[in-house]
Every structure is written in structure tokens, then in C-alpha cells.
């Protein structure tokens, strides 16, 4: 499910089945030295989460990404966000990011950290294989929560 009118309507009637929220955490950097890597990682994370959504449409909702920069990161109350999503009815709230600093939060949060892979130079076929490989890393994490 995406966070849009149609899908949310379906979510409201099927809350028993759609019990997982997938929240991308996007680290944006704008200085000249880092902006390229940051945008590439963003592209990677967005493509990957859209692919995960396609595979698990009926079980998880892909929440719009929460973005932050170095300066604004402290303002991101991820724990509160998690609680809020849980009170909406999501049993599992899983964060996904390419920023490794989140791995230190892994005690309180379910964080999937992935090293970003630059997709921009790949053609369609290769891109698809790469994303499929990455998806294989994510599936066990999800199913271990579910079953």
C-alpha cells in the first residue's frame, strides 16, 4: 500500500491484514562534496522501497519518507513516530535507511540498514537484478517479524 487516498481507504477496511508500516529515513546532504552521494542514495532507497511495496502490497504500507539533514536530525522524534504509527494499528513499524548511524538505535527500533548502491549508471535490466538481490536481503527480516 502507498500512502494515497485509494490505498488508505483499503487499509482502513483491512487493518487486520495490513499490519506493517515501512518508514524510509532519508539523510539529505547538500554540500558540494556530498550532494551527489546523498541524491544517489535517495534514489536507491526510493526505488527499493517502491519495489518492496510491490511485492508486499497487501501486508505493508510504505509511509512517505522522513527526511533530515545533519542540522535537523535531532528534531526527528523517531520513537514518537513509531508510537503514533502503532496506535494507528500497525503492529510492526520497520524503518529502512542507508544512513548507518541508525544502526545504533537497533535496540528500540527495527531498522533495516542497507549500503546504498548507485543505480544511475545502470541500465534497466541490471537495475532490476540489483534491486531483486537487495529485496532478498529484506524478505527474511520481514518474515522473521511476521512468523
Amino acid at each position: 500500500m502507498f500512502f494515497n487516498g485509494n490505498d488508505v481507504q483499503q487499509f482502513q477496511t483491512q487493518k487486520d491484514f495490513i499490519d506493517t508500516a515501512l518508514v524510509p529515513l532519508l539523510f539529505l546532504e547538500f554540500d558540494d562534496a556530498r550532494i551527489r552521494q546523498s541524491s544517489s542514495a535517495t534514489d536507491f532507497l526510493m526505488s527499493l522501497t517502491a519495489f518492496v511495496e510491490q511485492q508486499f502490497k497487501g501486508r505493508l504500507m510504505l509511509v512517505p519518507p522522513f527526511s533530515y539533514t545533519n542540522q535537523t536530525k535531532d528534531g526527528l522524534a523517531v520513537n514518537l513516530l513509531k508510537e503514533e504509527l502503532q496506535s494507528t494499528g500497525f503492529k510492526y513499524v520497520i524503518f529502512i535507511t542507508t544512513d548507518h548511524t541508525w544502526t545504533s538505535h537497533s535496540e528500540q527500533l527495527d531498522v533495516i540498514w542497507l549500503p546504498p548502491i548507485p543505480l544511475e549508471s545502470m541500465d534497466k535490466g541490471v537495475k532490476k537484478t540489483v534491486l531483486e538481490e537487495q529485496l532478498k536481503q529484506i524478505i527474511p527480516v520481514l518474515t522473521s517479524k511476521w512468523y
Binding site: 483499503q10 483491512q14 491484514f17 495490513i18 510491490q54 511485492q55 508486499f56 502490497k57 497487501g58 501486508r59 524478505i139 518474515t143
Partner: peptide, 26 residues
């Protein structure tokens, strides 16, 4: 596309029920 809630089904991916299409969601 699974007719339940639209996940993607896979062939033969459930070891308990071989030779079937399986939807990992539910």
C-alpha cells in the same frame, strides 16, 4: 498479483506446499 490484497505470488516458494503459487503476505 494475489487476489487477496495485491501482493506478488511466487512459484514453489513455500517448502510445506510444493508446486503451488504462494503469497508470502498472508
Amino acid at each position: 498479483v494475489c487476489k487477496h490484497l495485491g501482493c506478488t505470488v511466487n512459484w514453489n516458494s513455500d517448502t510445506e506446499h510444493p508446486n503451488q503459487f504462494f503469497c508470502a503476505c498472508h
